[in-house]
Computed example of a mutant assay.
Amino acid sequence: MRIDAHQHFWIFNPVRDSWIDDSMLVIRKDFLPKDLKPILKANNIDGCIAVQADQSEKETNFLLECALNNPFIKGVVGWVDLCNENVEERLKHFTQNKLFKGVRHIVQAETEDFVLRNDFLNGISKLSKYNLVYDILVFPNQLENVIKMVAKFPEQEFVLDHIAKPKISEGLIANTNWKTNIKRLASYKNVSCKVSGMITETQDFKWEEKDFYEFLNVVVEAFGTDRLLFGSDWPVCLLAGEYQDVLQIIEQYFSAFSKEDVSKIMGDNAVRIYKLNN
């Protein structure tokens, strides 16, 4: 099964979605399952995982409703307030829905040491009890503290989003710290990585396929093919390219890999890590 392990839906709200500014007109509108379904079909993708873009339980409920009404949405990575004392009660509530597979917090908008806050760590400590994945959304400068956090939870399944957003256009030499910390993070076998969100980490959204290869080399060497997952980051990717552009980068890069390895990256790993068959 071919799975897009990372995409979003929203009904555009200019106040809530203020991060979508005037420079992002192409995504300042609604993006719903009916918009994605034909794109997945055209690209031979069997299903997807819908990931939160807003930090509210309303968002989590919205995504779960989308998944309930659209069988191609195989799972949801939603939002729960991990810093709240009632976190376990809310996790118990949402895991009554089998489509609820994981939790994400937009840590890239937080301070460097946010992931080491006691209240946040308490929230993370509750996830494995409910077989939930935690999606890590950070910038490279936050990786060192992420490594410290991950070290505290050897039983927790983590997935790094968007290869931690290195500055692609500056090349690998300018991203030396990113490379070092990716290798350190990958040494924890309970951490996987989505090869996603790369085209929007380019200067003025200008890129060529080869620009990504040295970064993909790093994550392949670090995580291996058992812990990499394809994700489109649709519709955010539309800022810098079409869905098929994102897919082609990954398919072209991995074209020399074995059929088994390609199957892992293009879906099998997502099914296993997010327990999409459960």
Rank of each mutant, 00 (worst) to 15 (best):
A164F: 03
L143Y: 04
N141Q: 15
I168C: 05
I147N: 04
F120N: 00
G102L: 08
K129M: 12
C193G: 03
L160W: 06
P140Y: 08
K206D: 14
E144V: 11
P154G: 11
D211A: 01
G224E: 04
I168M: 06
V220I: 15
E110P: 07
T95E: 11
Y213P: 00
R227L: 11
D135C: 15
Q203C: 15
Q142R: 04
T200S: 09
K167C: 15
D204R: 13
L116K: 00
G224M: 00
F114H: 12
P140M: 11
E201I: 12
Q156W: 01
K101S: 10
K167T: 14
K101R: 08
A109M: 13
V146D: 00
R104D: 12
K206N: 15
T202P: 12
E201W: 09
G171Q: 05
K179P: 02
S187D: 15
I199M: 09
R184W: 12
E155T: 12
D204K: 09
K165C: 04
M198T: 08
R184S: 11
V138Q: 08
R117V: 05
T202M: 12
V133D: 09
D113R: 13
I163W: 00
V218A: 11
D226V: 07
V138F: 10
G224Y: 00
D204V: 12
G197W: 10
N97Q: 05
Y130S: 04
M198Q: 08
I136L: 08
F153Q: 13
G123C: 12
K165N: 03
E221N: 10
R104K: 13
G197V: 10
I106C: 06
M149K: 05
G102C: 11
G224D: 00
E157G: 10
I199H: 06
Y130K: 04
L143D: 02
C193M: 07
H162D: 01
F215H: 05
M198H: 08
D135Y: 14
G123P: 07
R227E: 00
T180Q: 13
E157I: 10
E209I: 03
I168G: 02
R117W: 07
R117G: 08
T180A: 13
N97A: 09
D119S: 15
K189W: 07
V159F: 04
A174S: 14
L172M: 09
R117T: 05
R227N: 02
A151K: 15
N181S: 08
D211Q: 00
E208M: 01
F139S: 07
T225C: 15
E221V: 02
W178S: 01
L137G: 02
E110M: 06
L137M: 14
P154N: 13
F223K: 00
E144Q: 08
Q203L: 15
V159S: 03
T180G: 12
A222E: 06
N217M: 09
A174F: 10
L172W: 02
V115W: 02
K98D: 14
E155N: 14
F212H: 03
D211I: 02
I147W: 00
K179Y: 08
K152D: 07
H105Q: 14
K165Y: 06
